[in-house]
């Protein structure tokens, strides 16, 4: 698992513990822009390395919050171990990695007999996000810069040789 969110994670996003997912997402986006290099409000408040530390605190907090219950369980079938997540190993060739990078990833995961939760535990990215990647639910995913990292980690966990390329393709489809 990604670990339970701590009090300081909520604080890092300026939220009360238990705030709902939409608020968490908005707060994360806002905090990211607040500590962006070009932000007026934090101009000269922080040194470059302090800024980097602050951003990584924000991202870690976000991942811990989004990666844990109850957000994971709200997802329905794809966040739920009991259904399609654990279905039979797929037969036939994998989908095209350019056309359907999400389905391509799911094909490889299922053919290795892995659940989203197992991968989530290994790479410390929430099962909810992994499901969104497989389903190509671009609207619900965090900013592309994070998604690239998540896809990369997912692909590497599946020992795919074209992980870098796949992450690139996923982003092209996401922002395109």
């Amino acid at each position: 698992m990604t670990g339970r969110p701590r009090r300081k994670d909520w604080e890092a996003l300026g939220l009360e513990p238990g705030a709902d997912l939409a608020l968490v997402k908005r707060a994360h986006r806002h905090r990211r822009s607040l500590y962006d290099k070009g932000s007026l409000a934090t101009y000269t408040l922080l040194e470059d390395d302090e800024r980097t530390t602050m951003l990584s605190r924000i991202d870690t907090a976000y991942r811990r919050i989004v990666g844990t219950e109850p957000f994971g369980s709200r997802l329905g079938p794809f966040g739920d171990e009991s259904t399609s997540d654990r279905s039979e190993a797929p037969t036939g060739p994998p989908p095209d990695s350019h056309q359907e990078p999400g389905a391509y990833l799911r094909h490889h995961r299922l053919s290795q007999g892995l659940t989203l939760q197992q991968i989530a535990a290994e790479i410390r990215v929430g099962a909810a996000i992994l499901a969104q990647i497989e389903n190509e639910e671009f609207e619900d995913l965090p900013a592309p810069v994070f998604v690239r990292g998540f896809v990369l980690q997912l692909a590497r966990a599946l020992r795919l040789s074209d992980a870098e390329e796949l992450a690139g393709q996923f982003l092209v489809k996401m922002v395109g």
Partner: peptide, 14 residues
């Protein structure tokens, strides 16, 4: 319009 609130948030963090 957001500047005041944003500076407040950053000051709280910092």
């Amino acid at each position: 319009q957001r500047l005041g609130e944003d500076m407040g948030a950053a000051c709280r963090d910092y």
